[in-house]
Simulated scan of single mutants.
Amino acid sequence: MALPSDVKIRRYEARDRDAVRWLCCQTGFLGKPIDPVFEDRELFADYLTSYYTDIEPESSFVLEHEGQVKGYLLGSRMPIKQQLHNIFQNARLFVIGMFRYHRYNPATKEFIAWILRNSWREVPAAPRKMAHFHFNVLPEAQSLHGTKTMMDLYFDYLRQHGEKAVFGQMVTFESRRGARVLERFGFQVLERKEITKWRNKHPEPVYLTTAVKLLEVAEK
């Protein structure tokens, strides 16, 4: 299906950095703003986007609607490089978060407690040496058919660099990005684990799901 005339999918550029960070925070609470759960938008955006925007920007794409960035796909085909970056990045963010801890509200402190106590238990298995990605699109842009276009462009980019497979880790629940949706995009679910921090904030179980797609098969 063709994109509307006012929708454009293109490679990420440095000028998109602020928009990507804002969008990350604006959709961080199950598609809604993260602020009621975690108030420090700077740390939240650093954790989820800074590697992709600052270290490997060539592997990402954005969705523009009426001249504004309303979606992104952040990818990496250098997993070892990213894992090494994350070791130092996470240590830096931990120190900053602890320095600011006394200023945070109770909801943010509860979020931090979950990170320290449970988050590492709730990460599903994922291939350590495979290209990967994640994406976010604002609710008003989800009906513009841009997500599949971004994914297809990213998969073509990976093929051009000799990658044979890709995985994504996505927040899923039955009314949003369920396993059947991933399968329609040609993915196979590898593992999913419930994210317990959402149990009292969402009416249905919420999972972090790892799904893998083989790239050597031609797109239909």
Rank of each mutant, 00 (worst) to 15 (best):
D6Q: 13
Y12C: 01
R17E: 15
W22L: 08
C25P: 04
F29L: 11
G31I: 01
G31L: 02
P33H: 02
F38D: 00
Y47F: 15
E64A: 02
Y72C: 02
G75S: 03
G75K: 04
S76I: 00
R77F: 03
M78L: 14
Q83V: 03
I87W: 07
N90Q: 11
N90W: 11
A91K: 14
F94P: 11
V95W: 12
F99H: 10
Y101W: 10
R103I: 02
Y104N: 00
P106F: 02
A107P: 08
T108Q: 13
I112H: 09
A113I: 05
R117N: 15
N118I: 05
E122C: 13
A126Q: 14
A126Y: 15
P127E: 06
R128C: 10
R128F: 11
H132M: 13
F133E: 00
F133S: 00
N136F: 04
E140L: 04
H145S: 12
T149R: 15
M150A: 05
M151T: 06
D152A: 10
F155A: 07
D156Q: 02
Y157I: 06
L158G: 08
R159E: 13
A165T: 10
F167L: 09
G168C: 10
F173I: 08
A179Q: 10
V181A: 06
E183F: 03
R184Q: 09
F185M: 07
G186D: 09
F187N: 09
Q188Y: 02
E194P: 15
T196A: 06
W198D: 03
W198L: 05
W198H: 05
R199G: 05
N200E: 11
K201E: 08
V206Y: 02
Y207D: 04
A211K: 08
K213Q: 03
L215D: 00
E216M: 08
A218R: 11
